[in-house]
Amino acid sequence: MSSAPPEIEIRIRARNGWLWLDWRGLIDYRDLLVLLVRRDFVARYKQTILGPAWAMVTPVVTAVVFGFVFGRVLGVATDGIPPSLFYLCGLLGWNYFNQTLNATSNTLRGNYGLFSKVYFPRLVVPLALAVSNLAAAGVQLFTFTAMFVFTVLKNPEFAARPGWGALLLPLLFLHLGLLALGSGLLLSAVTAKYRDFQQVAPFFLNLLLYVTPVIYPISQIPERWRWLAAVNPVAPVIEAFRATLLGTSGVQPGAYALSVAVTLVVLVVGVGFYQRLARDFIDYA
């Protein structure tokens, strides 16, 4: 016999715990993670004329429309930042959060064909989505940088400069990624059983955009409603994007700490529910 005596032992039985994670499996399947990221990326841009440039076009167009509607028509102040930069900066974090949540909230249903035929740690798929969306965020960051340089060259008096805090940017993306992943997985788990919740993610995200300081600075919220922004875990992170990249001063440390706490709770609950459902959802999906 050519095969070495196997040291692996797989025990299959009904589990009761909610937070059982196949850590070893996740490490074993890291190549799959990389390949899935690549697949997501290729599949999204294959046979498109603009390719990854789409990640550049949509936020720019959105920023222009926002600038017109909210800046010109409604006259929303942007803390002294040129509107295009202001919106691009807000969208940088928001789009990543939005896309990751949307994509991961369909993980179980969307991969039924795959999950009903082969086992691999189910977390690989949503993790790959969270990572592959970073590519679009990278392109967007590049767009923002270009716009920033352009603004500075055109208007030398424009004083905002990213500080050393900009180095924290990866952490901010990580924060949003984990929050989106947690909520996406939670939704994915509920949707696997009750299809009603399929309508929830886009709807919820639409509403959330309005209560998140993407199109307005947190300073525009009347004092007595400001707690709302503090409760919304996305808000402090979006403000932090602007603070690090444009040197604004909207971040309240208390609100940020609360956001981190909420993120961790959502993540644990989301992963728990997801893992629980992933164990046998193909029986009734």
Binding site: I8, E9, I10, I12, R13, A14, R15, F115, D280
Partner: peptide, 13 residues
Amino acid sequence: RITEPTSGEAVLR
């Protein structure tokens, strides 16, 4: 390992 048993156990080495 696509779905779980309701009871019992399988060991694969």
